[in-house]
Design a protein around this nucleic acid. Sequence first.
DNA 1: GCTGAGCGT
Length: 88
Amino acid sequence: MTIYIGNLSYQATQQDVEEIFNDYGSVKRVQLITDRETGRMRGFGFVDMSDEDEEDNAIENLNGATWMGRALKVNKARPRENRSGFRS
DNA sequence: GCTGAGCGT
């Protein structure tokens, strides 16, 4: 499952979020969204975990938590459009 | 190039 992270530090890195989420569960993949052209962080990212229990635990614990001086926002990420070409 | 919306190749 993918978790949405918002209001995070521009100086934050994937390994930072990775170890933080790893403390609440087993994070599989951390994807911080950065600008495709400039390469600067957009201020949000996504975390993929193994079990929903861990992700829910991480969300409940990391959501609204003050990280790097800012209120970290963690919530369930929206299912991205399926590249298969199908649409609801 | 030093920002602030929040959902991605």
